[in-house]
Amino acid sequence: MSSAQENAALLLEAKDLSIAYGKKDTVAGVSLSLAPGEVLSLVGESGSGKTSVIRAILGCLGGGGRIKGGSVLFDGQELSTLSEAEGRQLRGRDISMIFQDTGAMLNPVRTIGSQFVEYILLHTHSIKTKEGARERAITLLSRMNLPDPAGILSSYTFELSGGMRQRVGIAMALAFHPKLLLADEPTAALDVTTQAQIVAELLRIVRESKTAMILVTHNIGVAACVSDKILVLSGGEPVEYGAAAEILRAPKAAYTKKLLAAVPVLGGERYV
């Protein structure tokens, strides 16, 4: 395949992306690319700029953050040239995001159903009535293996367990078959058994609907199990980028080696 053809097939391409908060540069020189349906993990320690990168792609850097340089091409469009209205069209439909705790994303004094229905009506013209949107929400929740979807729609976020809330968040993010899903530490707040359930379900749905995903995680094990590609970040700079299998088998950068060596493994060498 020639490089022109390869580029045409790419869903997302970031080149030399740098991000600054105020006068402080936090991310520099990040380049990455993603084909439709591919899964890329951003790994690194806290403060390495993982979240800033995906927030920049979504165009919602908080706290005075801005893209300082570089380009982000999504589906052939340069994201920085989009108007506010065009950006809104893209976000939530073609690009959507899930967060560490869906309970914090949703309004605690409104039912999940009212927010889910509102979200569906805002983003699509094909469903016009509340009843229609409700039905759609129920279908989406059942796809996430949630028991009693109607009951969940009439619940408040605090009435659900962390795992159930996270399934709701994923169902909402995948409501319109986005081309790109950005997942920011989606399992970091969950118990280990729930984490394994959610990762399996997330990956199943992403594969089924051929959605590309960028997963931000500090759990190297999770990244290893789901990724096609891995980008290792440290202090806002890319350390290593490539096929997941390659990086895990033979890491080149000293930092990656150190990171991989620090992951506790069952049956590893004991310290006592």
Partner: peptide, 9 residues
């Protein structure tokens, strides 16, 4: 439930 750090995992 422990995720193995292994690409084939």
């Amino acid at each position: 439930s422990v995720f193995p750090v292994d690409a084939a995992g």
